[in-house]
Write a protein that binds this DNA or RNA. Structure first.
Lengths: 254, 254
DNA sequence: TAGTGGTCTAGACCACGAA
DNA sequence: TCGTGGTCTAGACCACTAA
């Protein structure tokens, strides 16, 4: 046979991929172990380079394996953070000066803010709509990147009306104890209700680079809107999360 | 040049992919439109088949485009459902005989249960742990597939202790008005609290087939646990969602 | 330096969809 | 029937990593 797939048979690359997956499931390859490379698969299965490649790409696109250029293809480890969407925003926490992120920390794992930037610009239209701003009104945008065990896992950009927060610590890189929500409370705009909307898709090339995502890893897009008691939206926080690094959790009553 | 990438330059396939993306963003190709095929890209960019292919595969793996064998590569449409995780489980709804899914329906879009199967088997260990069952105890598992506009979007498997629900309508394919939660309430095990845990990853080949997912579409894994007032877990529902068809939404107070 | 994965070429046969 | 994407071959040069 020179090409094409036999009508009754499993695809060659699929068969190779399945055998590798089975070996991983059986524990023959542990997380972090190196899998057989392209050359080895070519000889053991007697296939062309591109076919061996495609077999390995199946594992990568399912998030099971990760290629490192010049080194090999390795079984990925999966050790996600648990992000509690509701308890973490309870008043008792930010009101008392805790970081909103402290509950994200499993024992001994450090989630660190890698870079912060605060800018003021004209409000993007989809943000202006939610915050009830007029055309041309300006927003204060706080962008942060969070790093876990040396790997970036979360990009967060928080948008607030520039006129609302002018002069407060919110416009500083260090927003102070309790963070932005404590400052909003001091300004008389304490958040009372939150809405989080979650999507998931494959990352753009830019996002994949910023989060150092191996191919086959989707991202969560979490958009949180904070409302005051009277129902006014005061903050919109757009987040991009490495989906392989997070479990999102919500608890609520019936 | 015969092969390899010029050290300073953008990859060929990446450049082609970027131009296609720009054209889509600019509106030259609308959702549902057919993109230039492999043959057309080969001639217009003077590249080999595999290179044109790889350019198109970039768009597919980012979920921007979708290949249909024998027809072409098309710009994908994105029109997700909004799944409200909290309001939809309020007592007022299932208590009154509404389907839990009714709030998922945007006007004029029909979410239909495609297939139902109810089985009884020994509890998988991760389910037994949560439900507090002993080794060898049995569970009643209700599996359903939901279809929107002819496309499957959600696979749901609900696990309950077999001894707890024996003889009730829960063991029937039609669980009756108000669904499983109304029946649990009648049995004296009304759910009072819920926990939903969300992950996202690329689908396995099986999941991709069952949900008819184009490549480049991740899935949500939503695991909901229902607790009674005294904190006993009475139901574990494992769901697999087409991430391109859903926005998950949670609203809660500070 | 040897071996790895990343990109690229120039061919081929196949199953499928639309006309 | 004809064009499409899906699979496959057998070569090639490159950048990167680890020994």
């Amino acid at each position: 046979m020179t090409a094409g797939q036999g009508s009754g048979g499993e695809r060659k690359y699929q068969r190779i991929a399945n055998e590798l997956k089975a070996a991983i499931t059986a524990g023959e390859y542990q997380p972090g172990d190196r899998l057989p490379g392209e050359n080895e698969l070519m000889t053991t299965y007697q296939v062309a380079r591109m076919t061996a490649r495609q077999a390995l790409s199946v594992l990568q696109s399912e998030g099971i394996a990760e290629a490192r250029k010049g080194a090999g293809v390795f079984v990925r480890t999966f050790r996600p953070l648990r992000r509690r969407g509701i308890q973490r925003l309870a008043q008792s926490q930010w009101g008392a000066g805790h970081s909103v992120w402290s509950t994200d920390l499993d024992e001994d794992r450090e989630l660190i803010v890698d870079s912060v930037s605060v800018t003021e610009k004209e409000a993007p239209s989809h943000i202006a709509d939610v915050l009830g701003l007029r055309r041309g009104d300006r927003v204060c945008s706080r962008s942060r990147r969070f790093v876990l065990d040396g790997k970036p896992v979360l990009l967060s950009t928080s948008h607030l009306s520039a006129s609302l927060v002018a002069g407060s610590a919110i416009t500083q890189e260090d927003s102070g104890a309790g963070g932005v929500y404590a400052r909003l409370a001091e300004l008389g705009h304490a958040p009372a209700r939150f809405r989080e909307e979650i999507r998931s898709r494959m990352p753009s090339a830019t996002e994949a680079q910023e989060l150092r995502l191996p191919s086959g890893t989707p991202v969560f897009l979490v958009c949180r809107t904070a409302f005051t008691e009277d129902g006014t939206a005061v903050e919109v926080n757009e987040m991009v999360l490495d989906a392989g690094s997070y479990i999102l959790e919500y608890e609520f009553g019936a």
